[in-house]
Simulated assay, not measured.
Amino acid sequence: MEEAVIDTAFEFHSDTPSGKDADAHSPTLRRYHQLLWSKPLPNGDPFTLTPEPRGYLSHRSGRGTFFLSSDAITTNLLGRAWRVIQRIAPDDRPENLGYTIGSAVVFPGDKIDGKATINGARGFHPRIADRFDLTLECIRRHYAGGTSPLTDALLRYARFFDLFETFDAYTEFFLLDDLVHAESRQVAFMHPFDDFRTPAVPRTVDEYLAYVRSSNEFIRARNRRIENYVAGTS
């Protein structure tokens, strides 16, 4: 990839029409996804993404046809944790880093049998609450043959995950290594985790502040990783 094609500071809401969803309507975000993820799969097959006239991005090859959509993978839980947030003075709240490429990934976007996509399932499941660290743990368990709150959704899109063969290859492909412990290859959770028994939404001010700090650290680290990838130094 050519250097400086991706601006990791670009805020996708800035080129999204007013009142629209950046995941669907930011032309820069779609172009960045196309540039970043059009590359060889772990087995060497090309994974070429092309814009869909009435959709988002697609891949068509001997490996199958995949219709993809963009999804934000970080959240400050503004709606779910509002009771906690209102107890925090505005000046004491962590910085909102906005929506940059470090906070975005692609998932299959076509519904199967009218059931929820991965985006929808993780957004509505109370034990996930749209958190990507918990989503990534579900994906890790999927590759390991285990179960999780998202088992049904991930199995519906098993062909997509089969493209990447292993959890490590999946995280490496999408530059998600900063959310995985290097030695253990376990997910680096942003909030205390106990086999999905721990509440997904922080319940105290200290818990919420720690969660958002962890989320911001991940965004910054992934943006740096993307910069290095684009520059050919990673």
Rank of each mutant, 00 (worst) to 15 (best):
H59R: 03
R80K: 15
T75D: 09
L77Q: 11
V84F: 08
L77N: 01
W82N: 15
G55S: 10
Q86G: 02
R80V: 00
G79Q: 13
Q86K: 15
I73M: 13
G79R: 11
W82D: 13
A89D: 14
I85V: 14
L77V: 00
R60C: 09
S61M: 07
G62A: 10
W82I: 12
V84H: 10
R80Q: 14
T65W: 04
T74M: 07
R80F: 00
S70T: 08
F67H: 14
D71F: 00
L77F: 02
I73R: 04
N76W: 10
A81D: 06
A72T: 10
L57M: 05
R80M: 08
S58R: 12
V84C: 09
P90N: 08
P90Y: 08
A89L: 11
S70W: 04
I85L: 11
R60Y: 11
R87V: 00
I73D: 09
R54Q: 13
A89P: 05
R83D: 15
R87K: 15
R80G: 00
F67V: 10
S69W: 00
I85T: 02
L68R: 01
T74R: 10
T74F: 05
G64L: 06
Y56E: 10
R60W: 09
G64C: 04
S70V: 00
R63I: 06
S61Q: 06
G55K: 05
R87G: 06
G62Q: 09
H59N: 14
Y56F: 13
Q86E: 15
A89K: 14
L57Q: 04
R60A: 13
R54N: 15
R60T: 15
A81V: 04
T65D: 05
A89S: 14
T75K: 07
T65M: 07
G62M: 09
G64V: 05
F67E: 12
S58W: 00
Y56Q: 13
F66A: 02
L78D: 15
R87L: 12
I85S: 01
I85R: 09
F66R: 01
R63E: 10
W82L: 07
D71T: 10
R54K: 12
I88R: 03
